[in-house]
Simulated scan of single mutants.
Amino acid sequence: MPPILKSVLKLIAVLIVIVMAFRVNWLVGVAAIVVILGYFVYVNRSAFYAQRGNLAYMKGDREQALIWMEKAYLSKAFLPKHQIGYGYLLMKTGDLTKAQQMFEEVLQMTKATDIRIQARLNIATVYWLQNKRDEALQILQELSQEVKNTLVYGNYGYFQILLGNVEEALTYNLEAYAYNDSDLTIMDNLAQNYYMLGRLEEAEEMYTKVMAKTPKHAESYYFYAQTLHKLGRTQEAREQLAIAQEKELALVTPLTKEDIALFASQLGKDEVEVVH
């Protein structure tokens, strides 16, 4: 039976129960509504907890987000998409073992293609953060051969850059850009790829498109600043680097906050030298 039909039949059954209860007595009807609402809340408590966790994370309160997500997980009615979110949060807080457990459980419990792809990509990320680069690369290579979608293109394209395979990465990232030329991750990968190859004019052109989408991580602004600096546009580089210093680094990154601070210091010295 299709899920939507099943939901409609359940709704009709609930309405029939409520109507029959009110025919007996209005108090019975009210009691029936209270019981049904209570049952609905209980059955869907995992989704409510997960929503609270998502809201806490959006407010920057990772501790509360973890508490709510753990409650959702322990409720035993955890939706795979919420479990993916919980696993990602665990990665962000450094609990890689438990994050991997979340993703592997998702692979066991669902056949939904999109969810399984996300879980496998996240397991690759866990491996990368655990310095299991070969295992991470194997998953990504398998996915790139099995699937042609924006998510896989974005992830595998980025990891190829991190591995230093910049020529090979460029071929893949150009293919990704041809597939979806409006995705932020794909554009950012291509811009960074051009920068790594020293193709600065092409990097600058692509970064202009990236910045129009207001990327949230520091790496985009840092490498754009590097590109601008090497093109002799130092003041513009300083402006982009100032933004980079205010942004959070991505979960998987070739940079540290110290790298950004060091570059800012170098640009500051350049300014002093120009003044003198």
Rank of each mutant, 00 (worst) to 15 (best):
E70R: 09
V30L: 09
A119K: 03
D259N: 14
L163F: 06
I33F: 03
E167K: 04
K132N: 15
I243E: 04
T113V: 15
F159E: 03
Y57V: 01
Q245G: 13
T125Y: 13
V35A: 13
W26K: 04
E104M: 13
L163N: 01
W26T: 08
L255Q: 09
K10Q: 07
H276A: 14
L107W: 10
N25D: 12
Q100N: 13
Y156G: 08
Q64C: 00
T97I: 15
N189A: 03
A191H: 01
Q108S: 15
Q138L: 14
A47D: 05
L151M: 10
K81S: 07
M187L: 10
V166K: 02
D183Y: 02
L66S: 06
K247W: 04
V35K: 01
A31Q: 00
P215I: 07
R116K: 14
Y127N: 15
P3W: 04
L89H: 12
I186W: 01
A119C: 07
R233G: 05
T113G: 08
E201K: 07
E273I: 15
Y88Q: 10
M102S: 06
A218K: 02
E202W: 09
K247M: 09
T97E: 15
Q160H: 07
T97Q: 14
Y179T: 07
P215V: 05
P215Y: 11
D95E: 11
I123W: 14
L27R: 00
K59Y: 11
Y195H: 06
Y127V: 07
Q83P: 00
Y86T: 02
Q160N: 12
I243R: 05
Y158N: 08
E204D: 11
M1Q: 09
E205F: 10
I67L: 08
